[in-house]
Amino acid sequence: MSHEDVLNPKHMPHDPEKATLEGKNKFLGFWFFLGGETVLFASLFGTYLALNGSTQGENTPEHLFGLELVFIMTMLLLTSSLTSVYAMYHMKNHNFGKMQTWLAITVFLGLAFLGCEIYEFYHYIHEYGFTFRSSAFGSAFYTLVGFHGGHVLFGLSWITALLLRNRKRGLNLYNAPKYYIASLYWHFIDVVWVFIFTVVYLMGKVG
């Protein structure tokens, strides 16, 4: 396939993200990476579960966590997952403009989520004096939730870079795989969050 066919395909194939060998490789390689990320987060969850009883003073999970904010954050991230599905739907229909719009909405929802998380951490540190260093539970909590937050930040930067880089040209066989795996990454972030709100917040509240 010539470069021209990749950058300006005359007709878009059914699965633009897997039309080239590079695309197929990216698709598979990224999924494998997510398999590895599963173990990475499992190790963090394991550490958290081993240490969530190691609290100091009043700062126990039950005492600290407020479910309202967590619920809002969950809704934001779940919705952003749906909007990124919409973006991929429009990619399959070769509608570049709508894909960009839906991804932009995804980015805004992600930003809102990140804002809530920063507020939450700020709140714990300043209202409760609950920090990364105050107990093993504190270390484990901020590390697990912070790793997820870091993933959100990276995902947002990644999608934003894609949006800006490609705004003046349409969908092609070179950028379609990039969009596709970025959306996979975003879904995976949501997968991790489902376990975080269940294991850290809900189970923390139940005690």
Partner: peptide
């Protein structure tokens, strides 16, 4: 993914 999930499960059970 199932491979990763299996290792993840073992890890969680351990911890």
């Amino acid at each position: 993914m199932y491979g990763g999930a299996a290792v993840a499960l073992l890890t969680i059970i351990t911890f």
